[in-house]
Computed example of a mutant assay.
Amino acid sequence: MTMISLRLALRFLLVVLTGSALLAGCAVLDTQQRRWIFQPSSETWRGAADAAQGMDERWIEFDSRLQAERARVHALWLPQDRPDAPVLLYLHGARWDVRSSAPRMRRMHDLGFAVLGIDYRGFGQSSGDLPSERLAYEDARAAWDWLAAQHPNARRFIYGHSLGGAIATHLASQVDDAAGLIVEASFPSIRDVVSTFRWGWLPVGPLITQRFEAAEHIARVKAPVLVAHGSADRFIRPELGRQLYERAPEPKRWLLVDGGSHHNTSAIGRDDYRAALRELFGLGRAPDVVQSRLEPPSRHDIPLQAVAASPPVVLAR
C-alpha cells in the first residue's frame, strides 16, 4: 500500500469513526431529550385519582409504521347521554398518565363534549417504553381514526394541553375532518420554550431533536382554532401562547384567563370557555351544567405552586 493510499484510508477511517461517534452521541442526546421532555410515567397525580373513577376504559390497537409492530394505546372514555353530542379527543401533556387529566376531561365534558383521552406509548398502560415526537403524532392519529370509525356522524374536535397542544396542532394540520382545534397552555416550539429559560441565550437550537414546531403546523390548520392561556402560567408563558395564536389562520379566538395557572385555566375560566365555544364553534350551552365563574376551584384544580396577580381576562379575535 502506497503512502497516499494509506493516508486516504486513514482519513476515511477517521471520518467513519468521527461520524459513528457523532451518531452515537446524537442517539444518546435524542433519548435524553425524549426523557426530559415527556417525563413518561405510569403514575397518576394524586389529586386527580378520584376524578378518574367511573370513566370507561378503551383500547386502541394499530400497526405502527414507525416501529413495525402492533401498538396498543390505552384510553379513558367519558360519553354524553345525547347521541348528537360533539366528540373531543383529549391529548395530555408531560409527566403524568391520562388519569391525571381526568379533572380537565370532566370540565370539557361539562361543556357538552363526549371525551376520549389517551396515553401515548410509554405512558400509563399503553405499550412501549419511551415516547417520541413522531410516536406521539402517530398515537394521536390512530386515536382520531378510531373516533372517526366509532362516531362517524359526530362533530369531532381536537384538544391539547401543554405539550399535548403541540401534538393536537400537528394532528389538526394533518386531517380535514376536524370541526375545531382547542389548545391550552401551549407554545410555538420547544426551541421557543427553551429561549425563555435563564440560559436560553445559548445556541442549543440545532441540538434539539424533539422540536414540536407547533407554529408551523397551526398555520396549515383548516378548522377554527381556540387558543387559551392562563395569565399566571409560570411554566409556559402567556406570550408563547399568544405567539402560537398569531400563526393560526382565521377563524380563531384568543382567550386569556385572568389568574389562570398552567393547571387550572379551564376551571377558573369555565364561563369564558363556554362563551368562546359558542361564538367560535357554534356549540350550545348545556343547561344543567351552567356554573358561576366565581365558583372556587375544586381540590383537583389547585396549582402546584402559587400564582401571581395578573391582567384582566381578554377574549379577542
Score class of each variant (00 low, 15 high):
L304P: 02
R274S: 14
S100N: 00
I4A: 09
H161C: 05
A75F: 09
S101Q: 06
L76A: 05
E239L: 05
G117E: 04
P83A: 11
A172I: 09
D145P: 01
L315Q: 13
F12T: 15
R247S: 14
L171K: 05
Q39D: 07
R211W: 01
D271F: 12
A316S: 13
V28R: 02
T2A: 06
R106Q: 09
V289F: 10
G205I: 07
P251D: 12
W144C: 03
I182T: 12
E279F: 05
G160M: 00
G241L: 00
V225I: 08
L315P: 05
R317F: 06
G117I: 14
T196P: 01
H92E: 04
M55A: 15
H74N: 01
P249Y: 01
L17M: 15
R34T: 08
G47M: 12
V15F: 13
R155F: 12
A179R: 08
A68M: 06
R34M: 10
D63L: 13
T196V: 13
A48W: 08
G47K: 11
F123A: 12
G164F: 07
V87G: 06
L280K: 11
D129T: 15
G164P: 09
S292P: 01
V98D: 00
A166I: 10
A114Q: 08
D129L: 14
L256P: 01
F38M: 03
G200P: 03
D129V: 15
R253M: 13
S173W: 04
S186Y: 06
L304H: 08
P296L: 08
G165T: 01
H217P: 01
G128F: 07
A172G: 03
A306I: 14
L294G: 14
S126R: 03
H217E: 06
P79E: 03
M108G: 03
R237D: 09
I190V: 08
V290W: 08
E57R: 09
D30Y: 14
A136Y: 00
F197V: 14
Q53F: 10
Q291K: 14
R34E: 11
I208A: 07
Q291I: 15
A286G: 14
R234I: 14
A154L: 02
E133P: 04
T2P: 02
N153R: 10
P251Q: 02
R134S: 04
I167D: 09
G25V: 10
L8Y: 08
S186F: 03
P86K: 05
G165Y: 04
M1P: 09
Q291V: 15
A306K: 10
G284L: 01
V115W: 02
G164Y: 03
A9R: 12
S189M: 05
D176P: 09
W59E: 06
T265M: 11
R35W: 00
D110S: 15
P86R: 01
Q150V: 02
A51L: 11
H170S: 12
A286T: 15
R274D: 00
E239G: 11
A94C: 07
A49I: 15
A172R: 05
S298Q: 09
P188L: 06
A309N: 07
Q210P: 02
G112K: 02
D301A: 07
A24H: 04
L256C: 08
G93K: 10
